[in-house]
Each structure stands twice: as structure tokens, then as C-alpha cells.
Design a binder for these strands. Structure first.
Length: 435
RNA sequence: UCCUCAGUAGCUCAAUGGUAGAGCAUUCGGCUGUUAACCGAAGGGUUCCUGGUUCGAGUCCAGGCUGAGGAGCCA
């Protein structure tokens, strides 16, 4: 019985006859020799089919294969410097599972394509080497995030996707009919629920999709994206910053360890990633404003950073920046105010270098009942909907905090790619939600 | 919602207001070591839509549609 292997395993089978199942990536041929390039999801394998060594009908079949036809190739693995992957396979047999017809050829040719065409054909474009590298790194990042939290005492407690009330205005929420005329909203964050589960487990995290109905149309925005959100009981802003820093160093290290090939494919400057070490630069919002003024930004104290401000702050830095102590005026209702400065809150944003902007946002939450009630009122939020959240401040309230990290922004930064839409298999952007 | 840019062959793009073209893909032919192979040939067009200016519009004008980039927005 000939063993079925993947292309990634070829190195362990040199000199053996094996079988690889995949798709025809490309085909180069002359009259009496053909080089089908096989793709199996694990790598590329150059196959060599020599006319004189094969039955005539089989050689003709190989010679006339079409791009992305599904095939199962049997042959002997051989190390060869002329092959792109270092190994090649001398074809002994080839079974065509499905042949792509010439009348309707595979639309994505090896030459250039525009972004519109690639997004229309995203279900096929994900077969390409670039998408394969990016999505492989995405997988590594997610696995690293989970390994980090799992090995630091955090329990994964998933939070609901359907939520009952708008936390802050319905304009950025997707509304759905839950049943009859009862409305529910797709989650924007699991944080409030995390605050409840943290009181049950001590340290928790959730990881899932989040939905924002914003009319944002930039390289940093998706309408559906994935977010990991840890939350810790008995934690302060400093604890939150330390965990965020440690986690980011850990995931970048994992990608460098396990995904060199993919980074090379993306032409990522890995020295930029190797520089991601603790401690990150830390500054307050006040200090950030001062730096921005020196760099000519028109930003006023009390404004949130714009995209260009984030770029200005990070452009000459090797490491991420942690900015904390923001004006309470533009931050959410649940942030704990600074003890010495009631006009600023204990929130922190982590800005990635190279202009990738905010990848982490979080901070310390209000734990005092009266203050929370006051803030809910100030923000004109429906108190009834927050009753369960208010309860958390009645029954053993403690200082606590956490953060959220958008997976796609982190992956775009680590990959060094221009647009966040490439970091998810099927991106949902403002005007495109298919395929 | 606003600003900017774009729309020509299946794809990526050319074409001074004057005969609509190339490369890739497809088809046919050639080639025993190719590396997005190469060489020769063929087929392939509602130039996004509607209207206008002009002897003549892919090109200029008006409106619309679609897409992209950005702004605002972004717990």
C-alpha cells in the first residue's frame, strides 16, 4: 500500500513512492516532459512527468491538465535543487478527480489581478500563496493568544452574540428581530459579561466575533471582526498593561518561531518583529498630546486620536506604545477615574508601530456602586437594562480590569500588510458582504 | 454623509477628438529540466449606463451606476 502524505511531510519520504492528493497549481511542459506543480494546502510540490517513462495516454492526460483540476499523484520523492521546494516527485501515476474544463477555466491566473476581482472571487483567491500565508499566521496568532491565557490561569468563558440592549446608542449596533417584534443586537464586545464571569473565575477571557455597524471605510475597519478580551478580578490598570504587553510579546515570538516561511512569503521585515520586546514605551495622554503638538498635529486636549495622530506617535518607534489616562469625556461610561485626576480615566490603548494604530484597548473598570450609577445617568443609559451589571457592584465588588484585542489588526501588523481585509477568509466591509 | 480616483477582451492595462491594441488566460502547433517557462499562430469587444457637444467620442460635457482610497465615525 502506497502511503498518502502531505507535501509538508515529503522530506521524511525521500526515495519512497508516495501519494499526494491536491490541485494543479501550475503546469509547464514541453513535448516530452511536463512539470505539473501540485498544491495540497500544505505546500507546493513540483512533479516531473517524462513521456518515455509513462504510458502514452497518461502522459497526454498530464500534458493537458488544466489549472486547479483536482488530482492524486503517485510518485517517488527526490531531493533536487532545481525544485522550488527542494524536493520533487517523479510521477508514476496520476488520477484526475475532477478536471476543470477549458470552456470555463479557473479565473485566477498566475498574473496580477485587481482587488475588486480578487474580492469577488475570494472563495477561490484563498487558494493562493499570499492568502495561505496570511491565514496561516492568523491561525498561529489565535493559537498563541489562547495558549498564553490558558497557561496564565485564565478560563475561557464565551459571551453571548445576541445582546438585549444598546450599551451606547443604537447607531453602531446591528439590530435583529429576536422573536416577533422583540429586538436584539449583535454583540460589540463581551466585556460587560466578562466582568460578571471574572467574579466567578478570577481571570477569564472570551474570544469571538464582534459586529460594528459603523460607516467606516478604511484599511483598518471590518464590520465583522474577531476579538479576544481578557478580564481580571482584583486587577488595576498596571496589571492590565503588564498582561497586554506580555501577551503581545508572546504572540509575536510564536509567529517568529513557527511561521518564518509565511513571513518570508509576505516579504515581512522580521527585524521589526524581533524588536517587539518588553518593556513597551509608556506615556500618558497628556504626554502624547504634547508630542503630537511638537509634530504639528492640530489635536486639542480632549480630542480622541485620529488615524494620522496614531501614525505620528508610532512612526519613529520600534516597539508598541502604551498610552493611558485619557480624558473621561470621550471614553466609555465604565472606566475608573484616576484617584488624583477625576477628569482622566484609567484606560490604556496599545498602538502598534509602523502606523498600524490601536490594536489593544482596555483599562480598569469602575467598581464603586454609586459612581457607576452616576455614570450610567450621565451617559443617559437605560438603567433597567444594566441592572445585572449594577448587581456586580453590590455583591463583592472589587477593582478589576481587562482589555480587548482585535485579531485582524494584530495579524495585519504582524504580517506587515496594507489592508485588514486580507487577514480574514471572508471579509465583511461596508459595501461588501459576499461571498 | 463628504472628498479624491477609477471603470476598455475572462484578467492586468495601452490607445494626441480620426481604422480599439498588447501581455497573460483559452484553442492549435513546436520544444526532455522548466521556475509567473519559452517560440509560432488563431479566436475573443454593447469601451459601465443614459443623454449632450462635434463632420467624427473610449477620449470632451451633464446626470446616474459600480468599485477603490481616505475623512468623519470607531465600547
Amino acid at each position: 500500500m502506497i502511503p498518502r502524505i502531505t507535501i509538508a511531510q515529503a522530506g521524511a519520504h525521500v526515495g519512497e513512492s508516495v501519494q499526494i492528493a491536491g490541485w494543479l497549481y501550475n503546469l509547464r511542459r514541453s513535448g516530452k516532459i511536463a512539470f505539473p506543480i501540485l498544491r495540497d494546502g500544505y505546500g507546493l510540490m513540483q512533479c516531473v512527468a517524462v513521456k518515455s517513462a509513462l504510458p502514452e495516454a497518461l502522459f497526454e492526460t498530464i500534458r493537458n491538465l488544466t489549472q486547479e483540476s483536482s488530482i492524486i499523484v503517485t510518485g517517488k520523492i527526490r531531493a533536487d535543487e532545481r525544485a522550488p521546494g527542494g524536493f520533487e516527485m517523479d510521477v508514476e501515476n496520476l488520477e484526475v478527480v475532477q478536471r476543470v474544463p477549458e470552456s470555463d477555466p479557473y479565473p485566477i491566473t498566475p498574473k496580477d489581478h485587481g482587488i475588486e476581482f480578487l474580492l469577488e472571487h475570494r472563495h477561490l483567491a484563498i487558494r493562493g500563496l499570499r492568502a495561505h500565508a496570511i491565514l496561516g499566521i492568523r491561525h498561529e496568532v489565535i493559537k498563541a493568544v489562547r495558549d498564553y491565557f490558558d497557561s496564565h490561569g485564565f478560563t475561557l468563558v464565551d459571551t453571548p452574540i445576541f445582546t438585549p440592549a444598546a450599551c451606547e446608542g443604537t447607531t453602531t449596533l446591528f439590530e435583529v428581530n429576536y422573536y416577533e417584534d422583540n429586538k436584539a443586537y449583535l454583540t460589540q464586545s463581551g466585556q460587560l459579561y466578562n466582568e460578571a464571569t471574572a467574579m466567578a473565575f478570577g481571570k477569564v477571557y472570551c474570544f469571538g466575533p464582534t459586529f460594528r455597524a459603523e460607516l467606516s471605510k478604511t484599511r483598518r475597519h471590518l464590520r465583522e471582526f474577531w476579538m479576544v478580551e481578557p478580564e481580571m478580578a482584583y486587577a488595576t490598570l498596571e496589571d492590565v498593561k503588564r498582561v497586554a504587553e506580555e501577551m503581545l510579546v508572546f504572540i509575536v515570538g510564536r509567529v517568529l518561531e513557527n511561521r518564518r516561511e509565511e513571513l518570508k512569503r509576505l516579504e515581512r521585515d522580521v527585524t521589526r518583529l524581533e524588536a517587539i520586546q518588553a518593556p513597551f514605551d509608556r506615556m500618558t495622554y497628556d504626554e502624547a498630546i504634547e508630542i503630537l503638538h511638537q509634530k504639528g498635529s492640530p489635536i486639542q486636549w480632549g480630542d480622541d486620536f485620529g488615524g494620522t495622530d496614531e501614525t505620528l506617535l508610532t512612526q519613529d518607534r520600534q516597539r508598541p506604545i502604551m498610552v493611558d489616562r485619557f480624558p473621561a469625556s470621550f471614553k466609555a461610561f465604565y472606566f475608573e477615574p484616576a484617584a488624583d485626576r477625576p477628569d482622566v480615566v484609567l484606560g490604556v490603548d496599545v498602538l502598534a508601530p509602523e502606523g498600524y494604530g490601536e490594536i489593544v484597548g482596555g483599562g480598569q473598570r469602575i467598581h464603586d456602586l454609586d459612581l457607576l450609577l452616576q455614570r450610567i445617568e450621565q451617559h443617559k443609559l437605560p438603567k433597567e437594562a444594566f441592572q445585572w451589571y449594577i448587581d456586580l457592584r453590590k455583591y463583592g465588588s472589587v477593582p478589576h480590569g481587562g482589555f480587548g484585542m482585535g485579531i485582524e489588526r494584530a495579524v495585519a501588523w504582524i504580517c506587515g500588510i496594507e489592508h485588514i481585509r486580507e487577514t480574514i477568509a471572508f471579509p465583511r466591509t461596508l459595501y461588501r458582504w459576499a461571498p
